[in-house]
Computed example of a mutant assay.
Amino acid sequence: MDPLVENPNNPPPAATATATATNAAVAAVPIAATTLTVTNPFANSLNSSLTVKLDRLNFLAWKSQVLPTVIGHGLDDILLTGAAPPRLMVDGSVNPEHISWVRKDQLLLSWLRSSMSEAMLGFLPQYTSSNSAWRALEQRFTSQLKARILQIKSQLSTIQKVVTLIS
């Protein structure tokens, strides 16, 4: 056999070392003979796409930048529903789609955290998925917005009473 032609039964030493290291890293997770390709959904434009970091006062402005970016990258199902594919296939093997989903979710969670001020990061350490962090942020800021609306309505009512008394 020509030494320049690779023999699939006898891979070159570098390929063997790589395959062994790769297999050792995932030995605890048996995967069927499937090639799993996970692309970074953030590789194109997320680093510079947000001009506002989330703080205690700008949730709506921050959200108005985050949602179109997430939707544009096709990650809205992960962020808004949190519905992961089944972990295991019918035959008991690990579902490659689940692995890909978890990786995308963790990249999304990391990206969300990187778009926040340090003060806001302290609010999220216990959340381990992008969806749980998103729901917690929406709940926190929705209640703040409702309280602010009630405060403004009260102030407006007071102003209207004063105007009525003056007239």
Rank of each mutant, 00 (worst) to 15 (best):
M1L: 12
M1K: 14
M1Q: 11
P11M: 11
P11L: 13
A14Q: 12
A14Y: 09
T18L: 13
N23C: 01
A24T: 01
A27G: 03
P30K: 08
P30I: 07
L36V: 15
N40E: 02
N40F: 03
P41L: 04
F42V: 00
A43Y: 09
L46P: 00
N47K: 13
S48M: 08
S48N: 14
S49V: 10
L50P: 05
L50I: 14
L50M: 15
K53L: 10
R56V: 01
L57E: 12
N58V: 02
N58Y: 03
F59E: 07
F59L: 08
W62I: 02
S64Q: 07
V66I: 15
P68D: 02
L79P: 04
A83I: 09
R87V: 02
M89L: 15
V90Y: 03
G92Y: 06
G92K: 12
V94G: 00
V94I: 14
V94L: 07
N95G: 10
P96C: 06
H98D: 03
H98N: 12
W101S: 01
W101M: 01
V102Y: 04
R103Y: 09
R103S: 03
R103I: 11
D105K: 08
L107Q: 14
S110Q: 15
S110W: 04
W111M: 12
L112M: 15
R113P: 02
S117H: 07
A119G: 14
L121A: 06
L121D: 03
G122Y: 03
G122D: 05
F123S: 11
P125N: 12
T128V: 04
S129G: 10
S130Y: 03
N131Y: 10
S132A: 15
R135Y: 05
E138H: 09
E138C: 15
T142Y: 03
S143E: 11
S143I: 04
L145H: 11
I149D: 12
K153Y: 06
S157M: 05
I159T: 10
V163Y: 03
T164Y: 05
